[in-house]
Design a protein around this nucleic acid. Structure first.
Length: 487
RNA sequence: GCCGCGUUCGUCUAGAGGCCUAGGACGCUGCCCUCUCACGGCGGUAACACGGGUUCAAAUCCCGUACGCGGUACCA
């Protein structure tokens, strides 16, 4: 049987970084096994539904290269063998399942008011075999009365009837053997009073209906596995394999909540990573390594490479803290392998915002020149001198490097460059070295003032490589201007 | 509180009884390279939560404790 995995987010907001990682691990297993990656939208909570959230989920997955094989959205939807992929469009399935459960005596209806439930919790009780006899449900009330209230349209829910005294055991692909006593499992609501299913029912019904073979999801779901297993059993279905992923933690230790993350400067929604200029491949690489490795020292993977090396057996059990520094490093590493044109296209907007319209060819050569020094493509905008003459000169640099006769030396150098036959990296350097020799000064005494004059700053790529990118005219002009201004 | 899961350098991790005087990476840091800054190269810093067992031998197996995290909704 071929592997079928699914990512099943709720459209309650922008796709969270943790959600992206869950999707990634699903994709990894699907690609590794030649299986299918399904996207299912779990929109059963009307109160938390956010318009546009589904579009964001789709866009975020696509950006990261995790496009579903089956799921809602144009080009994918109606044709999928298990459509529809939105739970709000599959309510008949859940109703049928609930009816079957009721018929089989594995579920019952309950009329308890929110107030009554709150009072129960205040008592420290759970809705279970020990307490349901004292509550307002079809197990405690006469059948005729139940029917009368149902006919009268009284609001009610359907609850799973959990038998006490049983042990529910299973082998999680990541955590190993796990077991729960049913005494500690409460009678989960399956169908809410608005007629829509809860996650638990819809999830079990759909995973079966969509022939899902592996449920790979966050660890926060581990405690609800017994409920799900009991549901599969009651419905007469074979449960899929379970794999509960470790959580991504904030650097401070807690859950990577929006508030927690933003305090540490960590973007929380995928859209924010896009906006911050991260390379999707770097983020995917980083996320994959947060809880998994291939057993070697390898740290750089493309999605395809990671899928080849992937195995659920090597996924960790413990949570991993988010390390923004490592992500940044990975981003720089990834960027270096990009072509000049790719870096240029990513950096273009930031550069133009800084210096105005720039020439595409210039942008490309500048990208190539600076590639080893960039963490983000937009960092290229931090070197505006590659596109426009400097208007000011780094104060500390001038103080340290601009000496008494710097203006004269820079000016002579400008004249030589202007008069030379050629203007190349080699010739520019040779000319400056010759000048230093003639004047009997150290190379440092000429090279630093020249850099300051040409770029306005003290840091950057090789001076002569930089000058070659700028061109002779520009260099000569900048040298002369600086000689005047800093005289 | 109860239930469940977890615990190797600051962080991500290797480690599946002897190969571990615990390896790699990020970060921090020293040196080299060098026109600066990076890159790169060579070093350094720094960890098996604690206590009992089992064993000739434990980071690795068992038990307990501590701590952390998750769950405990008509949210997912």
């Amino acid at each position: 049987m071929s592997t079928r995995v699914r990512f099943a987010p709720s459209p309650t907001g922008l796709l969270h970084i943790g959600g992206l990682r869950t999707a990634l691990y699903n994709v990894l297993l699907a690609r590794k096994t030649g299986g299918t990656f399904v996207l299912r939208i779990e929109d059963t909570d009307q109160a938390r539904f956010v318009d546009g959230a589904e579009a964001d989920i789709l866009a975020s997955l696509a950006w990261a290269g995790l496009t579903p094989d089956e799921g809602p959205g144009s080009g994918l939807t109606g044709d999928g063998p298990h459509a529809p992929y939105r739970q709000s469009e599959r309510t008949d399935l859940y109703n049928a399942a609930a009816a079957a459960l009721l018929d089989a005596g594995r579920a019952y209806v309950a009329f308890d008011t929110p107030e009554a439930l709150a009072a129960m919790r205040d008592r420290g009780d759970a809705y279970s075999a020990a307490t349901r006899g004292d509550l307002d449900n079809s197990l405690a009330v006469e059948a005729g009365e139940v029917q009368r209230r149902l006919d009268a349209g009284e609001p009610h829910v359907v609850r799973l009837k959990v038998e006490p005294g049983r042990t529910v055991a299973f082998t999680d692909r990541i955590r190993g053997d796990v077991s729960f006593q049913t005494d500690g499992v409460d009678d989960q609501v399956l169908v809410k009073s608005d007629g829509l299913p809860t996650y638990h029912l819809a999830n079990v019904v759909d995973d079966h209906a969509m022939a899902i073979t592996h449920v790979i999801r966050g660890e926060e779901w581990l405690p609800s596995v017994p409920k799900h297993l009991l549901l599969y059993e009651a419905l007469g279905h074979t449960p899929p394999q379970m794999a509960h992923l470790p959580l991504i933690l904030a650097p401070s230790g807690g859950k990577l909540s929006k508030r927690n993350a933003e305090k540490m400067g960590i973007p929380v929604s995928v859209r924010d990573y896009v906006g911050a200029g991260y390379e999707p491949e770097a983020l995917v690489n980083f996320l994959g390594l947060l809880g998994w490795n291939d057993g070697t020292d390898r740290e750089r993977f493309t999605l395809v490479e990671m899928a080849e090396a992937f195995s659920l057996d090597r996924v960790h059990k413990s949570g991993a803290k988010f390390d923004l520094d490592k992500l940044a490093w990975l981003n720089g590493q990834t960027l270096r392998e990009r072509t000049a044109a790719e870096i240029a296209s990513r950096a273009c907007a930031a550069v133009e915002a800084r210096v105005g319209p720039v020439d595409a060819e210039r942008l490309a050569v500048a990208s190539n020149l600076m590639r080893e020094r960039l963490v983000f493509a937009h960092d290229l905008a931090d070197s505006p001198y590659l596109f426009a003459d400097p208007e000011t000169y780094d104060e500390a640099g001038v103080k340290k490097r601009w000496k008494a006769d710097s203006a004269r030396l820079v000016s002579v150098y400008a004249d030589r460059l202007a008069a030379a036959d050629a203007f190349t990296i080699e010739s520019a350097e040779a000319a400056l070295r010759a000048l230093a020799d003639e004047q009997g000064v150290g190379f440092g005494l000429v090279v630093h003032p020249v850099r300051l004059a040409v770029t306005g700053v003290t840091v950057g790529a090789g001076l002569f490589e930089t000058m070659a990118v700028l061109g002779r005219e520009t260099c000569v002009r900048r040298l002369r201007t600086a000689a005047e201004r800093l005289a």
